[in-house]
Structure formats: structure tokens, C-alpha cells
């Protein structure tokens, strides 16, 4: 119990510190100005969300392999947390885009593929609500989760290669190539990434405990019934 409180406290402190760093430590971006400070939150959350979906994928594979309910709990927890992250990304994105591009939404590769990713995991959670029997639900959703995760790179590259009308400057290229990013900026950014990962991990743990209690309750209720 206390461990959870400490974990949560650390996560929240890190997130607040990251916000502070984004506002007061990172230098002002030349062309975009103040609005660019959303980036530290927006992109870090996106990274955390993608990481979380990867955790979900690994948990899905482990479930299929080991068939232990704990992997199912982990996969539903991480899918929900990942979905929350991607939702934040999809909300903060347009808020950033509007002053910069003058429009809320554009069917650009990054935005579109993030949106498809969001849809895939929404349908993953939807599937879970529609299968009654716990073992079947765990197995079917694990398999769909695997298919969905395999689809993510395909979605991304298909849209990137065939659907982008105006290629635009990449703010953060692939991981590691922090080209053109001021050293302080990249420090602040990676600190934000760490903070968001901590937050995501904390939320996953909480959600996992919830799921575990749910199955305990289900079990106990049956016991009471049979008495």
C-alpha cells in the first residue's frame, strides 16, 4: 500500500518537474515560440503510449504462451493506459497544430497513423467487453492484440509512404537522431519522457490491481453462490 503511494507520488512529482522544466528551463523555440512547449508533454506522452502498447503486446504473447490470468490483467491494464496516453496525444496535437498551421487537423502521416492506432486499441477494449467467458476473452483479445500490434508498423509505413501530401520537418526523427535539437531541449525532452513513463507505469500498476481484485471478487462470488 505504502509502496503504491510512494510510486504514485514520485510519478506525479516527476511529471510536475517535467512541466516546470518545459516552461522555465527549456529555451524558447525560434520559429514557433511558446507553443512549442506543448511538444515536451505531447511527444513524451506519445512515446510513453507507444511503449505501453508494446508492453501490452508482450503481455498478449505471454498469455498465449503461458495462459496465466496475470498476463491478461497486464495486457488490459496497459491497453487502457496506452489508450489514455494516445487520447492525450490526439487532444494536445490539434491544440498545438491550430496556432501553428492554422488548422486543427490534417491528414498527415503521423496524425493519421496515431489515429488508426487509437482506433485499433479502442476495438481491442470493445472486443473485451463482448466476450463473456474470462478464459476465452483473454485468449481472443490477446490474439486480436497481437494482430493489432503487428498492424501498427504496416499502418504507419503505408500512410507515410503513400498518403503524405506535404512532407514536413521532422521534429524528432527516429530515436537517437535528435538532429537540430538544442542540447537543453533534448535534456528536458528526455526528462519528460522519463516522467511520462513513470506515470504510465504507475497507472498500469493501479489498473492491474483493479483487474486482479475483479477476478478475486468473481471467484469469491461463485464460492458464496455454491455455499
Amino acid at each position: 500500500m505504502t509502496k503504491r503511494i510512494i510510486f504514485g507520488g514520485v510519478a506525479i512529482l516527476l511529471v510536475i518537474a517535467a512541466a516546470y522544466a518545459a516552461f522555465f528551463i527549456a529555451p524558447e523555440e525560434r520559429t514557433m515560440g511558446l507553443i512549442q512547449r506543448i511538444f515536451y508533454f505531447h511527444a513524451a506522452t506519445a512515446w510513453a503510449g507507444e511503449m505501453t502498447f508494446f508492453v501490452c503486446f508482450v503481455a498478449n504473447l505471454l498469455y498465449v504462451w503461458k495462459r496465466q490470468p496475470k498476463y491478461d490483467w497486464l495486457s488490459v491494464s496497459s491497453a487502457e493506459v496506452g489508450l489514455a496516453c494516445i487520447t492525450v496525444v490526439l487532444i494536445t496535437g490539434p491544440i498545438w497544430a491550430h496556432p501553428v498551421w492554422g488548422i486543427w487537423w490534417t491528414w498527415d502521416a503521423r496524425l493519421t497513423s496515431t489515429f488508426v492506432l487509437w482506433l485499433l486499441y479502442v476495438s481491442y477494449l470493445l472486443l473485451r467487453t463482448l466476450v463473456e467467458e474470462p478464459d476465452r476473452r483473454a485468449m481472443l483479445s490477446a490474439l486480436f492484440g497481437i494482430f493489432a500490434f503487428l498492424d501498427v508498423p504496416l499502418v504507419f509505413f503505408s500512410i507515410r509512404w503513400w498518403r503524405t501530401q506535404h512532407p514536413q520537418p521532422v521534429i524528432m526523427g527516429g530515436s537517437g537522431s535528435g538532429s537540430g535539437l538544442d542540447p537543453t531541449m533534448s535534456k528536458v525532452f528526455f526528462f519528460s519522457v522519463l516522467a511520462m513513463h513513470m506515470l504510465a507505469a504507475f497507472l498500469i500498476v493501479e489498473r492491474y490491481i483493479l483487474e486482479k481484485m475483479k477476478s478475486e471478487l468473481d471467484f469469491l462470488a461463485r464460492e458464496v453462490e455454491t455455499q
Partner: peptide
């Protein structure tokens, strides 16, 4: 086929997956 609301569910699962 193993879920409830089967008729509605298939397009919902399938169409996003077929984006590429």
C-alpha cells in the same frame, strides 16, 4: 463469431486493421 454482437463487431475489428 465467439463474441456477442457478432454482426457489428467484425467490421469494427476488421476495418481499422485493413487500413494499410
Amino acid at each position: 463469431a465467439q463474441a456477442r454482437m457478432r454482426e457489428l463487431l467484425l467490421p469494427l475489428l476488421l476495418l481499422p486493421l485493413l487500413t494499410p
